[in-house]
């Protein structure tokens, strides 16, 4: 699937510092097949991925931070 066709998912994650956002980076890179941007200031992560929102949510939950799905974009 071309990158442009991949759905974009938005999540809100409670990140308080660089350390927290690097944990998010860690679990997502480990999952693979994702392109993402973490926005520490707004406590949001935008993910381009062919994985389902459920898979992404489960992956992000590994970090335990309070997190919620904001929807597809």
């Amino acid at each position: 699937m071309p990158a442009a066709a991949m759905p974009k998912h938005k999540f809100s994650i409670d990140m308080t510092c660089e350390g927290c956002s690097s944990l998010v980076t860690h679990v997502l890179s480990k999952l693979g097949g994702v392109q993402f941007e973490t926005d520490l200031l707004n406590k949001k992560v935008c993910i381009d991925s062919e994985h389902s929102a459920d898979t992404l949510l489960a992956t992000l939950k590994k970090n335990g931070n309070s997190i919620s799905y904001l929807g597809e974009k």
């Binding site: 308080t16 660089e18 350390g19 335990g64």
Partner: peptide, 9 residues
Amino acid sequence: MTCNSCVQS
């Protein structure tokens, strides 16, 4: 671990 939320996580 860099902050308290790491601890909590």
